[in-house]
């Protein structure tokens, strides 16, 4: 994928910084994260790359409190990610690899779920916000009445992004946002991510092994290898990195023999 849009410069930084120190996590005997140290700046698009099974998704789940670390700490906006009521003080959102849409709800109910469950707006106002957010991710209004199982993979991802937008998030996490998508839809999703960052100034963390997406949208990229940060820097710095696995990762292209 070519660079979807010019490198982002966030105009209104409402995002929050993320600081990770000595993060370790094992599942049984398998150590997945082996002491990750990382600083993600407020309002930047930060991409975490790495081969499959390197612990990228596990790292992302720690940021939003879906996993508890064995040791180490994560601070969101200066507060421990594990502290009580963090979700009420900071607006956090995550777009899952599968979309994570509730299949028993329509698209409109999914997108408006945060507002309706927390009773933040009356139903007429929720319907207006839902229509606005669906338009923001370039989905037709007719999609609102459909169920997630009636949508294509790309549309489900967009609905998931619309649902994340409703929370007016300060930190948005994307787990493999372009997996299983064709290059055109992947390009559109990449544009949505950068557009979200431009419009809201939210901090965005993307986990992917899609090189084109990573180098197209990132302010900075980190390369995770074997549960440790092997390299970190701007896209240009990463391209110039001499880390052997990263070089292989970037050079890997299918060539018929």
């Amino acid at each position: 994928m070519a660079s979807p849009v010019p490198p982002p410069t966030s105009p209104t930084a409402t995002g929050i910084p993320v600081a990770v120190r000595g993060l370790r996590k094992s599942f049984g005997d398998q150590a997945v994260l082996k002491g990750v140290d990382l600083d993600i700046r407020a309002g930047e698009v930060f991409v975490l790359m790495g081969p499959s099974g390197s612990g990228k998704s596990v790292f992302l789940r720690h940021l939003i409190g879906l996993e508890a670390p064995d040791s180490g700490e994560i601070r969101l906006g200066g507060e421990l990610a594990t502290s009580e009521g963090l979700g009420e003080r900071y607006r956090l959102a995550m777009v899952f690899q599968s979309g994570g849409l509730l299949n028993s709800l329509t698209v409109a109910e999914n997108v408006g779920l945060y507002l309706s469950e927390h009773r933040l707006k009356p139903s007429a106002e929720i319907a207006r916000v839902v229509a606005e957010k669906l338009a923001a991710v370039r989905l037709e209004p007719s999609v609102a009445a459909k169920y997630p199982t009636e949508l294509s993979g790309g549309m489900r991802k967009r609905v998931a992004i619309a649902r994340a937008l409703v929370t007016d998030p300060q930190l948005v996490l994307f787990d493999e946002p372009t997996s299983e998508l064709d290059p055109l839809v992947a390009l559109a999703i990449g544009r949505e991510i950068v557009g979200l960052n431009h419009r809201t100034g939210a901090t965005i963390v993307v986990v992917t092994h899609d090189r084109d997406l990573a180098f197209g949208i990132a302010d900075r990229i980190a390369f995770l290898d074997g549960g440790e940060i092997a390299a970190i820097g701007s896209p240009a710095e990463m391209r110039a990195s001499r880390h052997p696995l990263l070089q292989q990762f970037l050079a890997a292209d299918f060539k018929p023999e």
Partner: peptide
């Protein structure tokens, strides 16, 4: 099924 397809995780991220 909701757990396997990350729907429950999604609820948690929406502070539900």
């Amino acid at each position: 099924s909701m757990r396997v397809y990350q729907e429950i995780d999604a609820l948690r991220t929406l502070n539900i």
